[in-house]
Each structure stands twice: as structure tokens, then as C-alpha cells.
């Protein structure tokens, strides 16, 4: 995956809530696969994407797999850069304590700057 042996910066931009569409799960699966290629991978959660990290998800009643525990496995895959949009969590009445993993909270402009620094953006 890396040309000339250089590590590339990959950012996954997640903007969808977890169960209404398949975007969130698809993104997570691609993240896990990408982890095998030793690239510089980060995840950003914007808009409804922040709901993916909400604590306390119970999916039994909708007969759908609860993949939220898998975000806690990312650290073991050496994926430790998780960024969350400040405006998005505030608009949804959430704070960092409501999220199931440790994240860095950034405002929209700071996130935009990080996105600008990437080699590859994967939009979900």
C-alpha cells in the first residue's frame, strides 16, 4: 500500500449514526483491514458520526449486531488517533464521558486543518 516505503496518512471521516445505515459498520471493517498495512491511520467523527461512540448501546431489540465494543479494540490494532467534533457532541447534548473510548475533541476548523494534512481521506 505504501509507495517508496513511505507511510501515508489515512483518515476515516465518519458522519453517520450507527444502525440507520450501514456506513458506520462498513467504515469500521475497512479500518480494521487497513490496520494490517502499517499506515498512519486516524478516525474522525463528525455530525451524527459521534453517535457511533455513544456508551450503552443495546441492540438486542433490533436484532442487529452491536459493534460498538469493537471501537475499544482499536487500541490493540495500534489505532489510537480518534478525533471527535466538538460542535457535534455539544449539539447532541453529549460530553466526552458519554463516549466509550478515549478521544481528542477538536472544533470544526481544527478538524478541517487535520483533514487537509492527510494523504487519503475515506468518507463514510
Amino acid at each position: 500500500m505504501s509507495e517508496e516505503g513511505r507511510t501515508k496518512k489515512f483518515m476515516f471521516v465518519n458522519r453517520k449514526a450507527p444502525y440507520g445505515t450501514v456506513y458506520a459498520l462498513e467504515s469500521l471493517e475497512v479500518v480494521l483491514i487497513t490496520a494490517a498495512f502499517d499506515q498512519d491511520v486516524s478516525l474522525a467523527f463528525l455530525d451524527d458520526g459521534v453517535y457511533q461512540l455513544r456508551k450503552g448501546q443495546q441492540t438486542k431489540g433490533i436484532e442487529t449486531k452491536n459493534f460498538s465494543p469493537t471501537y475499544r479494540a482499536l487500541e490493540g490494532y495500534d489505532i489510537e488517533k480518534l478525533y471527535v467534533e466538538k460542535e457535534a457532541i455539544e449539539a447532541r447534548g453529549l460530553s466526552e464521558e458519554d463516549l466509550l473510548v478515549e478521544v481528542t475533541v477538536l472544533d470544526r476548523q481544527a478538524l478541517g486543518k487535520l483533514m487537509d494534512e492527510q494523504d487519503v481521506l475515506l468518507s463514510f
Partner: peptide, 8 residues
């Protein structure tokens, strides 16, 4: 809206 706020 998000795009305009985030974009550099």
C-alpha cells in the same frame, strides 16, 4: 453546512 464550517 458542516462542510462549510470544517473546510479550510
Amino acid at each position: 453546512d458542516t462542510c462549510v464550517q470544517v473546510g479550510q
